[in-house]
Computed example of a mutant assay.
Amino acid sequence: MGFLYSQLFVTPQYPTQPFTGQTVLITGANSGLGLEAARHITRLGAARVILGVRNVAAGKEAKEDIEKSTSREGICEVWEVDLASHSSVLAFGERMSTLPRLDAAILNAAVAKAEFSTAEGYEQSITVNVINSLLLGILLLPTLKATRQKNPSHTPRLSFVVSEVHAFARFPEWKEKQPMKVLSDKSTANMRQRYPLSKLLEVLLVQELAGRVRGSEVIINMINPGLCHSQLGREAGWELKLMKLLLARTTEVGSRTLVAGATAGLESHGSYMTDGHVENSAFSPFVRSEEGGQAREKLWAELEVILEGVRPGVMQIV
């Protein structure tokens, strides 16, 4: 009922809070929610907006579109990053570390796969939506923290775009020793449930990350944009297409929630935001349960091993 009410009767507030002088990163910014969020942030006075994209040509088109619609040239930059590749994420993180400041990062890039495929030894949704999204967030922490030290009056934000569909996922695999490895077994993978499950894993791990970082240094939050018209579900079946036809928000309206996450206060640290507001009661019952806490600890332990194998010492950043 909450989902239907939100989709049909709630319109997130149009962004007005300025980003004057700020440097902001948005991944998945060449289309959909990321593009529209970048447009708002550019319109609101950001000094530098980095479009993190896998498709550079599409990113350049997005840059031109944003600059034309906002009449602000030279603000957007197109930086390549492919979250299906560890080496690409590491190179992108290294490049981001050269920035003199980073005031907000909106990690929006994700995949919704209908067919099983792998990337870096794991099912691709797990690699992109979970493992490398957390890797990128961790790699950004030093620059975000340094920005806070240079500008004590401003606390940087690190926002992960999640989804309310995390509440629909079943996760019996959490009891296994290596849940993400088990989920990457093609013979047992349920790809119809994979996107919601990947978002459940992301929610659990971002919660754990936020618990290890002081909100006074970097505010880490999770954003649920609601069901929106975007390219994310282009591989999905007719059920999602029909639901979008009946209920989906425009990408511009959905993007307002991303901008809200990038301006939210300390109360949003470690929290779930929906319709642009903190709403921790919208975490699934599993996330809030004792079993959910146990699953979170097990996933974090597995993630530590994976990421240390990708770049030794990386977990010392947290």
Rank of each mutant, 00 (worst) to 15 (best):
M1G: 07
G2T: 09
L4K: 03
S6T: 10
S6A: 07
L8G: 09
L8A: 01
P12W: 05
Y14T: 09
T23Q: 11
I26L: 10
I26W: 00
G28K: 07
A29F: 03
A29I: 10
N30T: 02
G32M: 09
G32Y: 01
L35T: 02
H40L: 03
H40P: 04
R43I: 01
L44D: 02
V49Q: 04
L51A: 07
G52P: 01
V53G: 00
R54G: 01
G59K: 04
K60Y: 04
E61R: 02
A62H: 08
K63V: 05
K63R: 15
E64W: 05
E64S: 10
I66W: 02
R72P: 00
C76H: 02
C76V: 00
E77D: 13
W79M: 11
W79N: 01
V81E: 09
D82S: 03
D82R: 10
S88P: 06
V89L: 07
A91L: 08
A91Q: 01
G93F: 08
R95G: 04
R101T: 06
L102S: 07
L107I: 08
L107F: 00
A109V: 12
V111L: 06
V111Q: 08
K113V: 05
A119I: 10
E120P: 04
G121C: 05
I126M: 01
N129E: 06
L135S: 04
L135I: 06
L136C: 02
L140C: 06
L140D: 00
T143Q: 03
L144M: 07
L144R: 03
L144G: 01
L144Y: 03
A146L: 06
A146R: 03
R148G: 07
Q149E: 06
S153R: 05
H154S: 09
S159G: 11
E164K: 11
R170L: 15
F171N: 12
E173S: 09
W174N: 11
K175R: 14
K175S: 14
K175G: 11
K177I: 05
Q178G: 00
S184I: 04
D185L: 04
A189G: 11
Q193I: 04
Y195D: 10
P196N: 11
P196I: 14
L200I: 14
V203F: 10
V203P: 14
L205V: 13
G211W: 13
S216L: 13
I220R: 15
I223F: 10
N224H: 14
L227T: 13
C228M: 12
Q231T: 08
G233A: 13
G233F: 15
R234N: 04
E235M: 02
A236N: 08
L240P: 01
L242A: 10
L242T: 07
K244C: 00
L247E: 08
R249N: 03
E252C: 00
L258E: 05
G261D: 14
A262S: 08
T263D: 09
E267T: 14
G270H: 12
G270M: 15
S271L: 15
S271D: 13
V278H: 14
A282N: 11
A282R: 13
R288A: 14
E290H: 11
E290Q: 14
G292A: 13
Q294H: 12
Q294D: 12
A295V: 12
E304T: 08
V305E: 15
I306S: 11
V310K: 03
V318K: 14
V318G: 15
V318P: 15
